[in-house]
Design a protein around this nucleic acid. Structure first.
Lengths: 122, 122
DNA sequence: CTGTTAATGATAATGATTTATCATTGTCAT
DNA sequence: ATGACAATGATAAATCATTATCATTAACAG
């Protein structure tokens, strides 16, 4: 049966407190403040498991490595800071997306990614 | 000095006639109808050069390989068919993106990707 | 406390995409 | 036409992210 480990607890804590999608490297950096010896394989293993269990959702931002956020958040989009590369959540959503689909196409879902500078980097 | 080759001409023709972003594989498949012996290295070499020269622009669609489209088109977005994986151009753009940026953030540019079924696949 | 065995950590291996190498071919200025 | 050398094609090698391996560590049921 599964066991509770300090490493997995630290990974989950990192993702809960960040409140934004984190890369593997960000997860590792954050987690090492609590468990300094954690290896990269353990990060990948736990993330994969948390995704399989449905606790995490992968976020694909073009031009960067995979990021992960906690499953079940309200519909939202993402803002990429071009300076610090951090990705933030954006709670709103464009209102007129349905009209954008070409005639004869059926729209399933959509992604909006904003690029710019975050408040810290301006 | 640079020389004109059948291979490069065929690659450019493929991208001009497609009128949508193409992957390396799509470019190769299309080009081989004109120059059947073209190798993958030549495709990569020419695409890199065309990007460096500014003739091509890379289009990054999350969860897929890089695609390339001719530089200088009017502002547009993309529609990904979930069945055939082709990416199409969408000429319109959401009107209220500026309001989406979090307070204190500055917006540079944005990407909108629609997912669904194209007219052929419905 | 102790034994079982799941999980870890270090590192090798993998897979997928892109780039480098190099002998050969083809372009084009002369 | 022909020589210089840019470009090609086949394939090896480099990247980069992710997964597998395996000896060691540690969680937890009894």
């Amino acid at each position: 049966m599964p066991r509770q480990t300090r490493q997995r607890a630290a990974i989950q804590r990192a993702l809960i407190t960040a409140d934004r999608p984190l890369t593997i490297d960000e997860i590792l950096a954050s987690t090492r403040k609590i468990v300094p010896t954690i290896g990269i394989a353990t990060a990948y293993r736990n993330i994969r498991r948390l995704v399989d269990e449905g606790w995490l959702t992968a976020v694909d931002i073009p031009g960067g490595p995979a990021r992960y956020e906690i499953t079940g958040k309200d519909h939202h989009h993402h803002f990429v800071c071009l300076v610090c590369d951090r990705v933030f959540e954006v709670p709103s959503c464009p209102s007129d997306l349905e009209k954008m689909s070409p005639a004869g196409f059926s729209l399933d879902h959509h992604e909006v990614v904003l690029y710019g500078k975050c408040a810290d980097c301006r």
